[in-house]
Simulated scan of single mutants.
Amino acid sequence: MGLTISAIELKRINEPLKQAFKTSLQTVTERESLIIKVVSDEGLEGFGECIAFSTPWYTEETVTSCRFVIEHVLVPLLLDKTLENPSQVDEVFKAVKGNRMAKAAVETAVWDLFAKKRGMPLWQMLGGKDAPVPAGVVVAADEEKISDGVAAAFSAGYSRVKIKITPDSNIGLLKEIIARYPDMLFFADANGAFSEASWERLIAFDGAGFTLIEQPFAEQQWKLHARAKRDMKTAICLDESIGSLADAERAIAEEAADILVLKMGRLGGWSETLKVVELCREHSIGMWVGGMIEFGVSKAHNLALASLPGITLPGDFSASRHFWERDIIAPEIRIENGKVALSKDAGIGYCVDWQREEGASW
């Protein structure tokens, strides 16, 4: 059941965050993004989202670089192509080196398109489980605001809270906060803030009560991550280190992680991500779906990913109103009893407001 790509459109959106998102790398107060629409010869529409940031503080790709690559390189490669299955996009794009976030924005839209062509939810087309997805939220704030942020997450019904940490974090305060909520999971995310020089500070987090510590060291510090996995009781999770199937294979071979974070944008889209999922299943590596302060299109794809067997830890799934006054999708993503219900509609299961003005906020 093939289809032909008849049009590919792009729209830039920009929205202030309701509250600043602070990490060891950057403080984000505004989010710029690209929404991609891929149209078939039958008039069906599939949507994807580019999760690159405006400047290269997190990855080398940016919104501007992705827009150039999409418009001038990827669109000419894919336009008017007839595809029998969405995995063919990955093959078409192999002519282009790197630029995984740009590729993922377009490739994921084609997967949405094929699910709509087949008249089924994307999660169902992928073999996902029809069950609500456990939701987690990130508390990325100054130390004096962490306690209030966790309390708000608890009141909103989230089943997991992720707290940003650095070598200077107040471990005693974090331990005290975690102890208040015995029924919640707590993840620590360092964004590579530690080094060999701050090793003892990392070890001190072992007794704080976190389920895992995400990316304690820089992305290429494989030996330090393997050492942490070996010496610490708390599970070690890799995020920024995993940008391809080869990276996941290396993490397993070097015993550098107990758990991997799945981010389709950084992996280049669905095809590569599904290969990583299968690899993790084969080696009993834990998995969860990471977020990028994204809008609802990306989050809808991530919900389909989180439905797959083997992905059991709560991912970065906040309600639409957590970051934005209003999302670009309808209906809004809502949290009920700590989970997000999967849509039964075809494709990603949400309508996209394509009439939003280019680059405008709500």
Rank of each mutant, 00 (worst) to 15 (best):
A193C: 04
K37Y: 03
L313F: 12
I311Y: 02
A319R: 05
R227K: 15
D130V: 09
A208M: 08
P56T: 06
Q220I: 00
W362D: 14
E176M: 12
I333T: 06
M264H: 04
L308Y: 00
G315W: 00
G207A: 09
S155C: 12
S244W: 03
K263V: 07
A228E: 00
H225C: 11
L303E: 00
A304D: 01
R281A: 08
F47Y: 13
D148F: 13
G149S: 06
R180K: 15
K18H: 12
K339Q: 11
K81D: 02
S307K: 01
K129E: 03
V138T: 15
I165E: 03
I311V: 11
G136A: 10
Y181K: 04
A197Q: 09
P309K: 06
R180M: 13
A115W: 00
E15V: 11
Q221P: 05
E176N: 11
V133L: 04
S87I: 05
S147R: 13
E255Q: 15
I259R: 00
V289C: 07
R356G: 07
D258V: 03
A7R: 06
L173K: 14
E219Q: 15
E32G: 14
C66S: 13
N337W: 10
R67C: 12
L305E: 01
V89I: 09
H72W: 06
I328P: 01
W354I: 00
K81C: 13
T108F: 00
G136H: 02
V75H: 03
I51V: 15
G136D: 04
L17G: 04
A235Y: 10
S343E: 02
A257E: 04
L303V: 08
I8Y: 05
A248H: 10
E336V: 15
E214Q: 12
M232T: 06
V73H: 14
Y350S: 01
E61H: 02
L113W: 00
S271K: 03
I259S: 02
P56Q: 05
L77Y: 05
Y58A: 03
L262V: 10
M1E: 06
V28R: 06
G48Y: 05
T59Q: 13
L25A: 09
S318C: 14
P314S: 11
I293N: 11
A256P: 02
A104L: 11
R326M: 09
H72T: 12
H225L: 08
K129Y: 02
D345W: 05
V39M: 04
G128E: 00
K81L: 13
P134Q: 00
W354L: 02
I252W: 10
F114L: 10
R266W: 12
D142T: 07
P86D: 07
S65W: 07
Q220K: 14
E358S: 13
E49S: 07
C351T: 11
R250Y: 11
D206Y: 01
D41V: 08
V106I: 15
Q355G: 02
V63L: 07
T62D: 08
E357K: 14
S241A: 13
F323A: 07
V96I: 15
V340H: 03
K81W: 07
I259W: 08
P182C: 08
D353P: 01
S307A: 12
F154H: 10
E357Q: 10
P134E: 01
I36R: 00
